[in-house]
Design a binder for these strands. Structure first.
Lengths: 130, 130
DNA sequence: TATCAATTGCAACATTGTTGCGTTTAATTT
DNA sequence: AAATTAAACGCAACAATGTTGCAATTGATA
């Protein structure tokens, strides 16, 4: 079995996630780390963190990809079936842990995973009367 | 006002969509057209078709982007808030026009658009006992 | 402290999408 | 039917994002 190590770069990436309330793109993480490590290293760290179920990947409507810390607090088994909100004004992505869509599927489909992304205006931008 | 023209390339792209029951990527379209036109031209045709509300763009969980013909049959006003199904085995994307999720949002969010993608096994692959 | 596989940096490459610009062409007018 | 003209095109170049191979480095363990 492969063991995983705590390196300076991995710790730094995790700290960036801790400090951020919203999901982050690879580029945003790279900028915040300020050349502490190579671009490629960040991709590999993100891959590892996903495998370790510490972060999850979010693909947005506009094709951009972001990553966010997982919230394990309320579940024994970790499921990523929560919703994400993408603000059209400030482009921040937030996890809506409490929003779970209900839906009825046609027969003969086996659903393993769902992705539910809503876009519009977040509370911050809505209050600014944009 | 900008007028739009019916060119050979645009007609060919539309025929590819007509023939396909599933959503298509730029690359898949390019291959089917067999060098009838340039790669860039296809991007520009897709942009136009989206503006004309003839096709819509689908961003998948894995970060890939596909396009599919819009189904206007049941609606006066065209809304893209239907679900998409992404098969983990054959990687086909199909529109689930009848699936509309219901959900409850926290206050102070203004939702303009939703994207609901389910992944798992499609009927074809489910029956093949994968 | 020595060991060794996990991790890293670097270079190179692949894919996807965009932009500028000169040329071609569809649709309209003459 | 020919002239007009803006839309559409091809080509080249570029940008962003992500991947791979390999030699060098380093964290965890003995």
């Amino acid at each position: 079995m492969k063991t995983t190590r705590n390196t300076a770069a991995k710790t730094a990436v995790l700290e960036v996630f801790e400090k951020s309330k919203t999901a982050l793109s690879h580029t945003e993480i790279h900028k915040q780390l300020n050349d502490l490590c190579d671009r490629v290293t960040i991709y590999r760290i993100l891959d590892r963190l996903i495998n370790e179920d510490i972060i999850h990947k979010i693909s947005n409507l506009d094709g951009t990809v972001k990553y966010a810390k997982c919230n394990h607090s309320h579940q024994r088994v970790h499921i990523h079936n929560h919703a994400h909100f993408s603000c059209e004004n400030c482009h921040e992505i937030t996890c809506l842990e409490s929003v779970k869509p209900s839906y009825i599927m046609p027969h003969n489909y086996k659903v393993n995973e769902i992705n539910f992304t809503l876009s519009g205006l977040c509370p911050k931008c809505l209050n600014s009367n944009i």
